[in-house]
Design a protein around this nucleic acid. Structure first.
Lengths: 141, 141
DNA sequence: TTGCTTAATGCAATTTGGTTGCAAATATAC
DNA sequence: GTATATTTGCAACCAAATTGCATTAAGCAA
């Protein structure tokens, strides 16, 4: 995984630093989404918040991470898996296990409802309970 | 408009206060969306931020305003126009004139892509340029 | 390998947006 | 008009994001 991270950094012309490797490995090793606060907790002593923040920012700018915000307005980051037909702007996030999956782009029939209003950016977040977590918690059925 | 505001307040069992009337009239008199900061600027001397905040909160709870958040996570409020098939969670916002329109619910075919993942909440914001503003600014064509 | 140059980091401080406790002011019911 | 409960303004606080700057470290070239 370190290998994968190193390659990604090189491909993007970024210096290989411990901070960047650590942060990237968190994402490479999980399907979850993380906030800056999550990373602060993981690396409380090892890395400063501002450095973690700057790494996330850099990764987002390079298209390595996707970024969106939850209902309370906190920024959430997740690995960009470059799924075809996914623009990285539509996600489903499980409130229980925090797993995030990218959703396909909105159907053109829906976007036609915009009429002559021109779309430039969009952001869709659907939150709920994923299949796994529903099965784990029978009381929620 | 004051009349309309007064009626709305009474219908919702809310006391008629200057703060509430002022805030509600901002929304009744416009198709735009406003943040707390916007209202602070409008009423800088007349009303305190906390009172504006509480009015917005109350209106949202009563279903008079819709609330969602923009790309940077700031809460945005707009009048709930009770359009059929609109759940108040999908919006188009013009980056230029700030006009907001509610969009219909996502099509069921799209939601079926969630599979057995169960949706509980959602938030869709599409930003761009509305028809009017495109015509006003020919250089963007 | 060493030194050089530029970029990244840690720390402290700041900004922004949201939120609360409490005393004073005010709307409504009587 | 008066009593009562609600709302308001103020100040303070909180959470998340962001920045300036001195220090440190990465990577290139000699």
């Amino acid at each position: 995984m370190i290998q994968e991270a190193t390659t990604l950094l090189k491909e993007n012309g970024l210096k290989i630093t411990q901070n960047r490797l650590d942060v990237l490995c968190v994402f490479l090793g999980s399907e979850k989404a993380f906030t800056l606060l999550d990373l602060e907790k993981i690396f409380s002593l090892k890395h400063d918040r501002s450095s973690l923040f700057r790494s996330l920012q850099t990764y987002y700018e390079k298209g390595i991470l996707e970024k969106f915000c939850n209902a309370t307005g906190t920024a959430i980051y997740t690995l960009n898996r470059h799924k075809p037909d996914c623009n990285g702007k539509s996600h489903f996030k499980c409130k229980d296990c925090e797993t995030v999956v990218s959703l396909p782009n909105l159907p053109t029939e829906y976007l036609q409802l915009l009429g002559n209003n021109k779309m430039e950016t969009m952001n869709l977040l659907i939150e709920g309970t994923c299949e796994n977590c529903q099965n784990k918690n029978p009381e929620t059925l």
